[in-house]
Amino acid sequence: MTEVTGKEALERVKTLVEDIDFTMLTTQDAQNRLVSRPMSTREMDDAGDIWFFTAEDTQKVDDVQRDHDVGLSYCDAKGMRYVSVAGRASVVHDRAKMEELWTPSLDIWFPHGLETPGIALLKVTPLDTEFWEPAHGKLVMAAGMLKALVTRDTPDDTMNHGRIVC
């Protein structure tokens, strides 16, 4: 495994998070059970914060207000790319940030746009982030695995791995 660190790792995480888009957001409910649900990423900003739109009258908002610790799991199985984020979440009411992040595709969940009652942003500040992706690209890795099946050799399944601890 090839380790990627520092600015290069942060740039890779930003690209992966924004390319993969959907993540599973994991919170802890009032009974201390882990609960996950899909969320669409709007942005990972230059500070490393990851932004989502949400409605305030949801379990995830209740969970985050009770316990700010959350997990994000991004998975692109076809591309063999993965990101895991342990972070702290907060509910944000910043109209300018909402306007910056708004896209028409959000009308599905928020039919009145930014005027939808109870609309808010969920900001996740990463504390510990890890990612994995093929070091030589998906096609090279797949070809190596196919070759290994035929030759009975060990495949070159080298993955880039990075970790950012804040």
Rank of each mutant, 00 (worst) to 15 (best):
D46W: 03
K147N: 08
T151V: 13
K147F: 11
G71H: 08
T158K: 05
D94Y: 10
G137T: 09
A120V: 13
F22D: 05
M98C: 07
K97G: 00
D29N: 15
A135G: 02
S36K: 02
T2L: 08
D107R: 15
T26M: 11
V35G: 02
E11M: 10
D107P: 00
E115M: 12
P134A: 03
S36M: 06
A120E: 04
G118K: 09
G113W: 13
N32F: 12
F22Y: 15
D19T: 15
V17T: 03
D57T: 06
Q31F: 11
K60P: 01
M145H: 10
P126G: 07
T15E: 12
G118H: 09
I119C: 03
F22V: 15
I50R: 00
L146E: 00
A9W: 05
T58V: 10
T151H: 08
A135H: 02
L72H: 04
E18R: 03
L114M: 08
A142K: 08
L101D: 01
H136G: 03
L101H: 00
V150R: 07
E115F: 11
L121Q: 04
P117H: 14
T27C: 00
A148Q: 06
R88Y: 06
M159S: 06
D46Q: 12
P134D: 05
L127I: 07
E3Y: 11
E56P: 01
P38N: 10
S84N: 07
D57H: 13
A47R: 14
V165Y: 05
P111A: 11
L10V: 11
L127M: 10
A9G: 03
L114P: 01
E43G: 00
T23L: 05
T41F: 05
E100I: 09
L25K: 00
T125I: 11
A96Q: 15
A96N: 09
D157Y: 06
E100H: 15
Q31T: 14
I20H: 00
V91K: 03
M80K: 09
E8Q: 14
H161Y: 14
K147V: 08
T103W: 06
K78C: 01
G48R: 07
P155N: 06
E100G: 02
K123N: 05
T2F: 02
V35K: 03
D153F: 08
V85R: 01
V92C: 04
T2P: 02
E11Y: 05
T116R: 06
E43A: 14
A47W: 11
E3K: 14
E56Y: 09
K138R: 15
P126K: 04
T154C: 00
V165L: 09
C166G: 12
Q31C: 02
S36I: 09
E8F: 06
I50V: 14
N32R: 13
G87T: 05
D49A: 15
M145Y: 10
A9M: 10
L149F: 07
M98S: 05
T125R: 13
G137D: 02
V165P: 01
I108R: 12
R66C: 04
E3Q: 12
Q59K: 11
L106I: 10
V85F: 00
